[in-house]
């Protein structure tokens, strides 16, 4: 469980109007949301993959999406930066607001959106280029740096934020693919950080990594939270418990329950949530 002082854990993700427990006159104002999603449905052709999910994602918080395979958690996270767009026959209904902006509006450029909402995948996928080029690529195509010196600066800063710089500073011009699996994943995180995103989406970022590399990514998530909003899909419930502030449980395309992670893992409200997290047949 993460440090309580980092973020307000009393906020519930289901609805902005949920009463806060023990909120007296001294209660802090509600934290702003990075994403506000209302009745999001996703169709693959005629088949519905997500049945009207409403979920707010708090700014600077780590939100974990958990649930069995095929429950819709990956489908949902991919809606947040329009990664479902290229899938033929895929249609997204409902509203997804990023800082009040409708991400599905026709005038929104998905490339710009993905610079604000970066993504890290299950399998590390560095470009077949040098470590330096992997990180410099984004800032260069988005015009975030004007000179080689500026790019050098961005590359170093991003690698430092991804807790990788010290390990690769003498190997910046070796191929990204020559790094270890855990280093490659942190390189992908550095690549996402290089374009200065607000949100980082992580789709099972540790499932191909060993426990030590996993711990390094989890430590990194902890360090990045606060400055970045992080949404992580994970099959490891212990990982969700360790890294997240809020947890959302998906089942058969429904958002079953969401709340502070410590509540979900000690006293969940829904029987399906309890069945899943305790390892019972649902």
């Amino acid at each position: 469980m993460r440090n309580m002082s980092v973020v307000d854990r009393t906020r519930t993700g289901v609805s902005a109007t949920s009463p806060e427990p023990d909120s007296g006159a001294t209660a802090a104002p509600p934290k702003p949301n990075a994403f506000e999603c209302k009745r999001v449905e996703v169709y693959y052709g005629q088949k519905r993959g997500l049945n009207g999910v409403s979920l707010d994602i708090g700014k600077g918080e780590v939100t974990a999406l958990i649930g069995p395979s095929g429950c819709g958690k990956s489908t949902f996270i991919r809606c947040l930066n329009r990664m479902n767009d290229p899938i033929p026959g895929c249609r997204v209904v409902g509203s997804i607001l990023l800082d009040g902006m409708d991400v599905n509006a026709p005038d929104v450029d998905p490339v710009e959106l993905r610079a604000r909402v970066g993504m890290v995948f299950q399998k590390p996928n560095p470009f077949p280029k040098s470590v330096w080029e992997n990180v410099a690529y984004g800032p260069r195509i988005h015009g975030l740096a004007n000179s080689k010196a500026e790019l050098d600066e961005v590359v170093e800063r991003s690698l430092r934020r991804a807790a990788l710089f010290d390990e690769v500073k003498d190997r910046l011009h070796e191929p990204g693919t020559s790094l270890s699996g855990g280093q490659q994943q942190r390189l992908c995180i550095a690549r996402a950080l290089a374009v200065d995103p607000e949100v980082i989406l992580m789709d099972e970022p540790c499932s191909a990594l060993d426990p030590i590399a996993t711990a390094k990514i989890e430590e990194l998530i902890d360090e990045l939270s606060g400055n970045y909003t992080i949404v992580i899909v994970t099959h490891s419930m212990q990982q969700a418990a360790r890294v997240s502030d809020m947890t959302a449980f998906f089942h058969l395309g429904d958002l079953v329950e969401t709340g502070p992670t410590d509540t979900i893992f000690t006293t969940p409200r829904d029987e399906r949530t309890e069945g899943y997290i305790t390892g019972r047949f649902g």
Partner: peptide, 9 residues
Amino acid sequence: RQPTAGDLR
């Protein structure tokens, strides 16, 4: 087993 929820209680 790292019990959670009802099992932990």
